[in-house]
């Protein structure tokens, strides 16, 4: 029997809005557990634009994506939120007592009275390169991640990309593969200079091949690759390969949320503007993933949604408690929760 983690509120997505929800829920004595597909908090702020400035957070004239995340993490620390990273929420089912059971793609199970979907533009997943027919090879001879290096022993490996993933796996899999070819559309790389130098040294030593170009076509049978056609600056070359690892970064996909029985509208979740609750009682949606008349996809709107959602979540988790509205500035009980009372 798998161990079940119990919490008051399960938050899907650890972007800025999911993080701030911890604060608003925490003030109301609700404990939170967050699940995110990335390996760290911050969502798009951390993955897409950690160093880019944001100018529309109230009272912060300018803040970088990463700094906003760092400040939110500091702000919610008193509430001791729990995180499960690098997981996607695979399933969600309603329990007889009205709560929910949530399971990740790795089988971890959670039970919560309330589920908050703060999944932004969806979950970050590997981008599929624009090669016709690549789907037929996926999971058999085309992989977007390396789970076990041994799976590539003795294979003719083609790695495509110019970032850290492509270069790191080139260096790590070179000793394991029978032959390894790296393909990138230009001779410059985004990856760390040290990795690039190591790769170039392997190339000089004749231990790997490097080809400038873009993969245009794949040849093989029954999902097993035989070769790839690479269009270079001058002409096309055919490269024999039995395994292909494309590293084209991440894209956002709605993912399994679509299968949870919640009403959707063009990949967004319609909610009411009093509680930000979905068509399923007890499941809320806040931030970029929800929709209502006048919706703006702004972080500050998501913060507002989190505050109102928290009031409704409180009534579900503690139905017999009377909620008294209080200000953090003047309420000693809120200050005690924040750990700022002497």
């Amino acid at each position: 029997m798998t161990q079940v983690t119990k919490t008051d509120v399960l938050i899907v997505g650890a972007g800025p809005v999911g993080l701030f929800a911890v604060f608003e829920l925490g003030l109301l004595d609700l404990k939170c557990h967050l699940i995110d597909i990335l390996d760290r908090p911050g969502g798009q702020c951390a993955e897409l634009y950690p160093e880019k400035p944001i100018y529309d957070i109230p009272a912060l004239p300018v803040v970088s994506g990463q700094e906003l995340v760092d400040r939110l993490m500091e702000q919610i620390r008193p509430f001791d939120p729990q995180f499960t990273f690098s997981r996607i929420v695979a399933s969600l089912e309603r329990l007889p007592d009205g709560g929910f059971r949530v399971t990740t793609d790795e089988g971890e199970a959670f039970e919560a009275k309330v589920v908050v979907i703060a999944a932004g533009g969806g979950s970050f997943q590997p981008k599929r390169p624009p090669i016709p027919g690549i789907e037929a090879y996926e999971g058999k001879s085309v992989f977007y991640a390396v789970r076990r290096m041994e799976a590539f022993r003795g294979e003719d490996l083609l790695i495509v990309g110019g970032g850290d993933s492509a270069l790191d796996w080139t260096l790590n899999l070179q000793p394991v593969a029978r032959r390894l070819t790296l393909v990138h559309r230009r001779p410059e790389f985004r990856a760390a200079p040290d990795s690039v130098n190591k790769m170039l040294a392997l190339k000089e030593a004749g231990k790997i091949d490097f080809q400038v170009g873009q993969v245009k076509a794949l040849t093989g049978e029954n999902g097993m690759l035989k070769s790839a056609t690479v269009k270079g600056p001058q002409d096309e070359v055919e490269i024999a390969c039995t395994r292909l690892l494309p590293f084209f970064g991440l894209t956002m996909k709605l993912g399994p949320v679509a299968e949870w029985g919640i009403n959707l509208n063009e990949n967004l979740i319609p909610v009411d503007t009093e509680k930000f609750e979905t068509s399923e009682p007890g499941i809320f949606a806040i931030g970029d993933i929800n929709h209502y008349p006048g919706k703006l996809k702004l972080i500050l709107s998501g913060f507002h949604e989190a505050a109102l959602m928290a009031q409704a979540a409180k009534r579900i988790v503690h139905p017999n408690e009377k909620v008294v509205f209080q200000y953090t500035t003047s309420s000693t009980s809120l200050q005690k929760k924040l750990g700022v009372l002497d």
Binding site: G161, G162, E188, R190, Q214, F248, G249
Partner: peptide, 14 residues
């Protein structure tokens, strides 16, 4: 510029 070239790596049919 360099940053844009890096992002173009992710584009379709560059």
């Amino acid at each position: 510029e360099a940053m844009e070239e890096d992002m173009l790596d992710f584009a379709y049919e560059v």
